[in-house]
Design a binder for these strands. Structure first.
Lengths: 149, 149
DNA sequence: ATACATTAATTGTATATACATTTATTTGTT
DNA sequence: AACAAATAAATGTATATACAATTAATGTAT
């Protein structure tokens, strides 16, 4: 659907403005669908993001600030997200012995299990969300990478 | 900057997944820069969005639910955003005479003034945010429109 | 060794998002 | 007219974002 229809705006100031609006709207479109998928599993999109980062560690612990650096939203509060995931039993947290300021975080079996249950659903959702052929997806990834300087 | 560097992730499951992540990351990148620009004016990005919708009405009132329909984030709470803007003196709100369930919202002179002050800054920011040539921006807008079915 | 700066994580506070519920009003049906 | 259904906005509550401030531990310079 054209962005003009989606937000009922007849015209944009210029194509730069239209591109910004289009990117913001598209993100909202994606996140709302992801939220619906995650909800039955007790996860928000950002909590899921943290679990994926932990899974990517292959069992090695990672500190809260390293999680923060790898998050999609650099301003989100990794400390509080980790606390939420701990309450749900999806992660464990323990003091790092070499530097007691730091906290080592690892995903639990229960956390791995919820990711496993989500895997196929997310695979499908991604295909549903991105209605482009492979060449176009390559173009899109390229444009987005270059857009950010 | 390539998305792999930006979030320190070596590889993605597939290009669909990479595209989703790239879109979410790019939005966060844009919103954080917009927030910094709006902050000195006492506006959040979504509050600015509401003011722009009102300005687009050319003086005609618009109801809260129509604002909601036109917002970039369909899940945001137009009622509360309107209340915040009212407190700041940027909008006026009054009962719609033909249907007392509805509320007519209009931008104030003060609201128009803050948009005017922001106009040139946003123009520059948009150019800074979207580091692509005009042809590429056209491609990007096209891909985003088609991506959403 | 002490003092000072730096770093890591947590906490506080305000705002925003997400979604369900409530209240008031209008519309539609009989 | 009476009543149920639909609609518009506001409100309640939980979570998340944004950013400042705090606490605790470590690093560095003298």
């Amino acid at each position: 659907m054209k962005i003009e229809e989606a937000i009922q705006q007849k015209a944009f100031k210029d194509i730069y403005n239209k591109a910004v609006v289009n990117l913001l709207y598209t993100q909202s479109y994606i996140v709302s669908k992801q939220s619906s998928l995650f909800k039955p599993f007790g996860l928000s999109p950002e909590q899921y993001n943290v679990l994926r980062i932990l899974k990517g560690q292959n069992g090695n612990p990672i500190t809260v600030s390293s999680i923060q650096d790898r998050m999609l939203n650099k301003m989100s509060n990794a400390s509080r997200l980790v606390e939420k995931l701990k309450q749900k039993g999806f992660i464990n947290r323990e003091e790092c012995p070499r530097d007691r300021r730091q906290v080592d975080v690892v995903i639990t079996d229960q956390g791995m299990e919820v990711l496993k249950q989500l895997e196929e659903k997310i695979h499908s959702l991604n295909r549903e969300l991105i209605q482009l052929n492979e060449e176009e997806i390559g173009q899109l990834n390229n444009l987005l990478d270059r857009l950010r300087e």
